[in-house]
C-alpha cells in the first residue's frame, strides 16, 4: 500500500510557552522546532504498517523548505522513503492548509495513496482539524484517534480510542486516519539512517503546482478572537490526616461547607 503522512513542524512541546505581552502572541524565539508528537506517532504507525504489509511511506508538509528540511530529514531517518514540502503561499488559513494538503496529495508521484495519516492534533494549536478537513476535501472516509491499524479485505481495520475505551472501525481504501498515542514510542534514528537521510532528495511543489486556488488557501471561516494564557491553577488543599476515616470526614466537611453536597 502507498501511505502518506502529513506532518507539521511545531515548537518543542516540552518547553513551556509564554505570551509576549508586547505582541500578544506566543514567545517562540529560541524554542527548537520539532515534528509534532502526534505526527511522529502517525509516521511510526505508517512505517510499521509498511514493514508488515509492504508499500512505501511518503511525508508531506507545508511551509518554508529550508526551515522544514531538518524535520523532513528526521522523518526520512525513521521510516519515510519520500518527503515533500508544499511551499507556503503568502496567506494560508488552517482550513486552507487541509485544502492545500489534499490538492498536493493528488500531485505527488508516489500517489494515489491508499491511506493518509495525520496526527490527531498538533501540540501547538491543538485544533485537531487537519485530518477530518482533509478527508472532507478529498471525499474520503476518516477514522479519528486511531491506536492500531491493520489491513482488512482490501481496506483497513482500525482500533479507535473512545472516551470509554476503544472500538474497532473498518474503512475501504483510500481513506484518512488520525493517530493518537499508540502503545509504543516512535523509533530512534540509527547513526546510519541519519546519515543516509542527508542524501535523500526532498521534493517541493508550490500551491500553484498543486493546483490550489489562492483564494481557497487563504479563506478562513474561523477567526481567532484572542490568544490568552490559561489562568494559573490555584494551589489546592492537602488533606493528609493520620487515619483515612479522619481524612474523609474533613473532605466531607469541606464539600458541605462549599454547599457542594
Amino acid at each position: 500500500m502507498e501511505l502518506l503522512v502529513c506532518i507539521k513542524q511545531v515548537p518543542d512541546d516540552s518547553v513551556t510557552v509564554t505570551l509576549d505581552p508586547a505582541t500578544g502572541g506566543p514567545q517562540l524565539k529560541d524554542i527548537t522546532p520539532v515534528v509534532n508528537a502526534f505526527d511522529t506517532y502517525a509516521l511510526e504507525m505508517a512505517t510499521r504498517f509498511k514493514e508488515a504489509n509492504g508499500g512505501s511511506v511518503t511525508v508531506v508538509t507545508i511551509g518554508d523548505e529550508a526551515a522544514l528540511t531538518p524535520s523532513l530529514r528526521s522523518c526520512l531517518s525513521v521510516g519515510a522513503e519520500h518527503a515533500y514540502v508544499v511551499t507556503e503561499p503568502a496567506a494560508v488559513s488552517a482550513l486552507g492548509k487541509s485544502y492545500l494538503l489534499g490538492k498536493a496529495a493528488g500531485k505527488l508521484a508516489e500517489g494515489p495513496f491508499d491511506v493518509i495519516f495525520c496526527g490527531c492534533e498538533s501540540t501547538d494549536t491543538a485544533d485537531g482539524q487537519a485530518g477530518v478537513q482533509l478527508a472532507e476535501q478529498l471525499g474520503l472516509p476518516v477514522i479519528t484517534n486511531v491506536l492500531e491499524l491493520e489491513p482488512k479485505d482490501g481496506g483497513i481495520s482500525a482500533k479507535q480510542e473512545t472516551e470509554e475505551g476503544y472500538r474497532v472501525v473498518e474503512a475501504p481504501c483510500p481513506c484518512v486516519v488520525t493517530v493518537t498515542k499508540p502503545a509504543y514510542e516512535p523509533r530512534y534514528p540509527s547513526i546510519k539512517s541519519k546519515m543516509a537521510a542527508r542524501k535523500m532528495p526532498i521534493g517541493t511543489l508550490s500551491a500553484a503546482d498543486a493546483g490550489a486556488e489562492e483564494a481557497r488557501v487563504a479563506a478562513a471561516p474561523a477567526k481567532r478572537v484572542v490568544l490568552a494564557a490559561p489562568p494559573q491553577r490555584q494551589s489546592g488543599v492537602k488533606i493528609q490526616e493520620k487515619e483515612a476515616a479522619e481524612s474523609v470526614r474533613r473532605a466531607m466537611e469541606m464539600l458541605a461547607g462549599q454547599k457542594l453536597i
Partner: peptide, 17 residues
Amino acid sequence: PEDQDLLDSVREFCEKE
C-alpha cells in the same frame, strides 16, 4: 555542522534511555 543531527539524536537517546 552536518553532524549536529547525530549529536541531537544521541543526546535524545541518552536523555530518554
